[in-house]
Design a binder for these strands. Structure first.
Lengths: 210, 210
DNA sequence: ACCTAGAATGAATGATCATTCATTCTTACG
DNA sequence: CGTAAGAATGAATGATCATTCATTCTAGGT
């Protein structure tokens, strides 16, 4: 009796950039499923349907791959926010605020898959300064944009005694905390009520805009 | 010529419970310094000034040691909160609220060492259900206590349109988010301004109590 | 159709690490 | 003191993993 042959896969050659992308996606999938600590190069390359050596070919080391993966995730999340805040669609300020909230607590971002990856890296930030650097850079950019949006709203609404910088910091922290709660204690908090909590926060600060 | 003798350490025998405690403390120190992923049994036992075999003797496996360490940290943080909220000192509600805030964003809790450990475990929660279980249990207890404190304050202050459960969730999320910001982007947020942000949150909800 | 640059493979290598356990040491108790 | 229960040690073991590189294969150019 003959053992079932594994379906022979034809080797495919692709441009460097595409392979890198593919490996980063596979890394995200593995981190979400097995955690950052347990993710091996074998898992990643298998997830991508490629051979072990390929990772080294495109990223030199595992450390590099992890770094680039963080960069990718951070960029995706923060540019998403920034685009909305800049309001290319020329929406009014209230709509932008709502859109931002819906993005931050929406289907795409609050997937377990995404939040797992995000917090996996945060967990290592204390030990790996480079991770901190990557996140800080993007975070600063988003914080500036949010502060500027809040400042416009404060001006438009004539709100008194509100510091846009502090409020932006508070709002960002609230969103991060809600993400954490959705990940760690999902039974205690639905996405819907997370959205309500964030909305209430904004409403107390900008009663005429929400 | 004789090589310098390492200072011979006299072997010391201690009761099981004390050794366990000592190893857990060493684990915390290592996680803070090297990260959860890179922490080895060698590091932990060396940090404790003991031999490698000792960890296996008291905890069977590394996984057990990590689990017990999380339990220890979670218990420390949450019982600290709960004690304050229950107000054994019979303080009035406003004082309890302030004390809670000062504990959560105070010297003890916001040490880099502590926050690193905390988030290291959160990062693995997505992949290890047991971690989620440990944290969830304590979190639920603290959440109930906070909700009950908020409910008392709402009653005392006659505040309208405030749901204690939702507000408690929001406040907890804000505190977690501030911890995260203090860890990841310490240059953007001082402990002092973190406290102000949290106080402002409470003030908007309970203007007569803060 | 042929050729070649370089993309992709995966068995082999060596490093790291958790775990084991035969042995040594400490201390409480008789 | 002497002894035994069991606490502590650390060299040895075997498993896991990142990384290497000789070899195989692909596809675009001629």
């Amino acid at each position: 009796m003959k053992a079932a042959q594994p379906p022979k896969k034809r080797r495919k050659i692709l441009p460097k950039e595409q392979r890198r992308q593919q490996l980063i996606e596979a890394t995200i999938a593995c981190i979400a499923r097995y955690g950052l600590a347990s993710t091996t190069m074998h898992m990643v390359t298998q997830e991508a349907g490629l051979s072990v050596g390929i990772a080294n070919l495109h990223f030199e080391t595992k450390e590099n791959l992890l770094r680039e993966t963080l960069r990718y995730v951070a960029e995706e999340y923060h540019t998403g926010q920034i685009d909305i805040m800049r309001g290319r669609e020329a929406e009014n300020l209230s709509d932008r605020l709502t859109a931002l909230l819906n993005f931050q607590l929406g289907k795409g971002v609050t997937q377990r898959r995404k939040m797992s990856v995000w917090f996996a890296y945060f967990g290592e930030v204390g030990a790996r300064p480079i991770y901190q650097k990557i996140v800080s850079a993007w975070d600063r950019a988003a914080a500036r944009e949010l502060e500027s949006l809040f400042a416009s709203i404060i001006q438009e609404g004539g709100y008194r005694d509100v510091d846009p910088g502090e409020l932006a910091m508070g709002y960002s922290a609230l969103i991060d905390g809600l993400h954490l709660a959705l990940l760690v204690t999902p039974r205690e908090l639905t996405k819907q009520s997370a959205r309500k909590i964030a909305r209430d926060f904004l409403q107390r600060a900008f009663p005429n805009h929400i």
